[in-house]
Design a protein around this nucleic acid. Sequence first.
DNA 1: TCTTGAGTCTGTAGTCACTACAGACCTTAT
DNA 2: ATAAGGTCTGTAGTGACTACAGACTCAAGA
Lengths: 147, 147
Amino acid sequence: MTDRAIGRGFKRSELARQTGSNLETVRYYEKIGLLPEPPRSANDYRVYNEAHVRRLRFVMRGRELGFSIEEIRGLLELVDGGKQTCAEVKERTEHHLSDVRAKIADLRRIEKILAQTAAQCSGDAIPECPILDALSSYPDVGDAGHR
Amino acid sequence: MTDRAIGRGFKRSELARQTGSNLETVRYYEKIGLLPEPPRSANDYRVYNEAHVRRLRFVMRGRELGFSIEEIRGLLELVDGGKQTCAEVKERTEHHLSDVRAKIADLRRIEKILAQTAAQCSGDAIPECPILDALSSYPDVGDAGHR
DNA sequence: TCTTGAGTCTGTAGTCACTACAGACCTTAT
DNA sequence: ATAAGGTCTGTAGTGACTACAGACTCAAGA
């Protein structure tokens, strides 16, 4: 058996290479039932085909877009169920979209605070640091157990 | 000993209440050395004071702003070291700020894709779903192990 | 042909930042 | 006196991986 298989059937490392995923992550996804257990060759090596590549790419794209494993599991069920599920897929996507927007809002708030405090700071060797003040919201913080 | 202590000295639940943190998180922060081990009363209960409240608030604010535990540990060392560390605090803040901005950029990219694909979807009972197509980037995905 | 290095297999442990629980002890109120 | 609740400890669980140990197999070079 050569490393890059001819027509159909390749090993785990090749699947990982083709999808850009980590070798161990493949095994992990199979263990939790997100990817199907592939058939095995005589030496007990996993044997994959193009369908596995597509499925793993789907999962990875979903993860990149911030879907949780369980959300992706749900999307895959819709995919496998097939037929009239477009409305539900849309609903889940919009739900996830609002999650993403909330995260962006949070991070922007954080960005603002960090940028403000960094701007206030001269960077000189001044004992009182406005950044630490902003973090503490009380004048003296770093002394628990020392007074 | 009454539950809300009089002048100085209160219990873990009161510290958690005053800071809005989880009861167990307090113990966890002490275990990993982020908060100092407080003195104990005769019955082995932890006894806190205002300094502990301030320190925990500092940690929580840092966590809210997306600093990791180790980053906060570093900031606290600067705090405890005192003196001329303002420049270093500023540097770390700006480093963290660029991390936050990168995360925002990622999420905006994700938001865009999700919004686009959701908009393309009619929500009707159409077998071919543009959202799933966008996720898969290949026409047929949901069939690994089924052909 | 032997050997060496690399790839694959399994289960398990480690990561981060908590959160929850079991079981023992103590305190407070009725 | 008793029941409810708070505190103590260590440990296990979470999510989503990542890494490792030890056994096995395979392919290529000397």
